[in-house]
């Protein structure tokens, strides 16, 4: 995405002049070197591993290397069922990732709890605590679906703005980089959802 007039750019390219903007260059670099955090929670992680392995090879898309430390990761792929026991650790890992950071919620479980939604021990969606950029449905999603989500994320990164009122979150000093970690309550996690992050659409019933 750029603010340069496409016709002008084409005309200049015909003359051998290639113009770009700082924002375009910055986003181009970022979207093609996304390093995911290496952790899997359940069966979706097997699909994530398949995506990273040679047959699907996420590195072709700029996914590159999975990093075992959040300090070096840009993307968190929440791959699988998030149990309530695991949720604080995931939020803490997200907090420990440096900005800019993105989250892909992979599979039905990470979106909503999936088939375990009625279970007492399963978190009903990781978006209750951390902001999610891309959701992929599926149980589990195929590697192609994860690659599609990855490309959607690249599209999102590409459209983020460097300056102005609606610039990217990580460039805005007012936007938080950490989110409160839930604690184990008597029956549920405390709080059950971070209301600043989790704003599900209201269902209108007539």
């Amino acid at each position: 995405m750029s603010d340069i007039d496409e016709g002008l750019r084409k005309e200049l390219q015909r003359q051998g002049v290639w113009v770009t903007s700082m924002q375009e260059l910055y986003n181009w670099g970022r979207k093609n070197s996304i390093w995911p955090l290496q952790f899997g929670l359940a069966c979706c992680a097997i699909e994530m591993i398949a995506t990273a392995a040679s047959r699907y090879d996420i590195a072709r898309f700029g996914g590159e290397v999975f990093r075992p430390s959040p300090r070096q990761a840009d993307l968190m792929i929440v791959a699988g069922t998030v149990t309530k026991k695991m949720a604080p650790q995931i939020v803490r890992l997200y907090n420990q990732m440096p900005d800019p950071k993105y989250v892909i919620s992979m599979g039905a479980c990470a979106i909503s709890g999936g088939p375990f939604k009625q279970g007492y021990n399963v978190l009903k969606g990781i978006d209750r605590y951390i902001p999610v950029d891309v959701y992929i449905p599926g149980c589990p999603p195929r590697p192609e679906a994860l690659l599609h989500a990855f490309m959607e994320l690249q599209r999102k990164i590409d459209s983020q703005r460097l300056t102005g009122a609606n610039k990217a979150e990580h460039l805005d000093p007012a936007e938080p980089s950490e989110f409160p970690v839930p604690s184990f309550g008597e029956h549920d996690l405390e709080p059950p959802a971070n209301r600043e992050v989790f704003q599900p659409p209201k269902i209108e019933r007539s």
């Binding site: 803490r92 420990q96 440096p98 900005d99 300056t163 990580h170 000093p173 950490e178």
Partner: peptide
């Protein structure tokens, strides 16, 4: 451009 955002958990 990018303001630093350190935090208790990020630095932990």
């Amino acid at each position: 451009f990018q303001p630093p955002k350190p935090g208790a958990q990020k630095n932990a």
